[in-house]
Measured scan of single mutants.
Amino acid sequence: MLYVKVKTEDGEELVLEVEGMTEDEIREELAKAGFKIEEIEVYEVEP
């Protein structure tokens, strides 16, 4: 499983499960949803 931890400019932290997306695609999708991203951390969790 691939997850991203996202910190927004307003200090909110989100953890999202993503599969088959690049970091650029993740940033693009979050921007479309109205999030202003300060930091993204991508990590993989073994089942």
Rank of each mutant, 00 (worst) to 15 (best):
E29W: 15
E23L: 15
M1R: 15
E46P: 13
D24R: 11
E46C: 13
A33T: 05
D24N: 10
R27F: 07
L16D: 00
I37D: 07
A31F: 11
M21K: 10
I26L: 07
D10Q: 08
G34N: 02
E41M: 13
V45D: 06
K32E: 03
G34L: 02
E12I: 14
D10T: 10
E17K: 15
V45R: 14
E19N: 12
A33S: 07
V42W: 12
E23P: 11
E39D: 12
R27S: 03
E46L: 13
Y43F: 10
A31C: 10
G34C: 08
E23K: 09
E44K: 11
E41A: 08
E13K: 03
P47D: 07
L2M: 12
M1I: 12
D10P: 01
E44W: 15
I37W: 10
L16P: 00
E29V: 15
A31Q: 11
I26P: 00
K5T: 05
K5V: 10
Y43P: 02
V15I: 13
G11L: 02
G20L: 05
G11P: 01
E46Q: 12
D24Y: 11
K32M: 07
E29C: 15
T8M: 13
I37H: 06
G11C: 08
F35M: 04
I37G: 06
F35L: 05
I37C: 07
V15G: 02
Y43L: 08
E38H: 13
K5H: 07
Y43N: 03
E25N: 04
E41Q: 11
G34R: 02
K7N: 04
E12S: 11
E17D: 04
M21G: 06
Y43K: 04
K32Q: 08
I40Q: 01
M1Q: 07
M21H: 07
L30S: 00
E13G: 03
L30P: 00
E25M: 06
V6I: 12
K36R: 10
V15P: 00
F35N: 01
F35I: 07
Y43T: 06
V18W: 07
T22C: 06
E12T: 12
V18Y: 14
E39P: 02
E38K: 14
V18K: 02
I26R: 00
E41V: 12
V42E: 02
L2H: 10
M21R: 11
V15F: 12
G20P: 04
P47M: 09
Y3C: 09
E23S: 08
E38D: 10
E25D: 06
K7V: 10
V18C: 13
V45T: 09
P47N: 08
E19H: 14
P47S: 09
G34D: 01
E9C: 14
I37R: 09
V45C: 11
K5F: 09
L16R: 02
R27W: 08
L16T: 01
V18I: 10
E39V: 12
E44F: 13
E29F: 15
M1T: 12
V18Q: 01
I26C: 04
V4C: 05
V15N: 05
V42R: 05
E9G: 09
K36I: 07
E29H: 13
E17R: 15
E46S: 10
E46M: 14
L30A: 02
E39L: 12
T22Q: 03
T22V: 02
P47E: 06
G34Q: 02
I26D: 00
E41W: 15
K5L: 07
F35G: 01
Y3H: 06
T22S: 09
D24E: 12
V42K: 04
G11R: 01
M21L: 09
I40M: 08
E12A: 11
E28W: 12
E17S: 10
V4D: 01
L30C: 05
K36E: 04
V15K: 03
V4N: 00
V42H: 04
K32Y: 06
E19V: 13
I40Y: 07
G34K: 02
M1G: 06
L2D: 01
L16Y: 12
T22M: 04
Y43R: 05
I40H: 01
I40P: 01
G20S: 05
E28A: 13
G34P: 03
V42S: 04
E23C: 14
G20Q: 05
L30H: 00
G20V: 04
F35W: 11
E46V: 11
E12H: 11
V42C: 06
E39A: 13
D10G: 08
T8H: 03
E25A: 07
L30Y: 04
D24S: 11
E29Q: 11
V45I: 11
A31K: 10
V4F: 07
L14E: 02
I40A: 03
E46G: 09
M1L: 14
E28P: 01
E39G: 09
L2N: 05
K7Q: 05
E25H: 03
E13W: 15
E44H: 13
K5W: 14
D24A: 13
E12C: 15
A33M: 15
E19P: 06
T8N: 06
L16A: 02
L2Q: 07
E29T: 12
V6G: 02
V6P: 00
K5M: 05
M1P: 07
T22N: 07
E13T: 12
I26W: 07
V6K: 00
D10Y: 09
E23T: 08
V45N: 08
E19M: 13
K7E: 03
I26G: 00
V6M: 05
Y43A: 04
E9L: 11
L14P: 00
K5E: 01
K7P: 03
A33E: 04
T22H: 04
P47V: 08
E13N: 05
K7C: 10
G20Y: 09
E41D: 06
I26T: 01
E39H: 12
E39M: 12
E9A: 14
D10A: 10
E23A: 12
V45G: 08
V6H: 01
L14W: 14
L14D: 01
E19K: 13
E29D: 05
D10C: 12
D10S: 12
V15L: 12
E23N: 05
E25L: 05
R27N: 02
E38I: 15
Y43V: 06
I40W: 08
P47A: 07
L16I: 10
R27A: 03
Y43Q: 03
E46W: 14
D24F: 11
I40R: 01
E23F: 14
E44Y: 14
V42Y: 10
R27H: 03
G11M: 02
E38L: 15
E29M: 15
E13M: 12
R27M: 08
K32W: 06
E9K: 14
K36V: 06
V18P: 00
E28S: 10
E19W: 15
V6R: 00
K32P: 00
E19Y: 15
D10M: 07
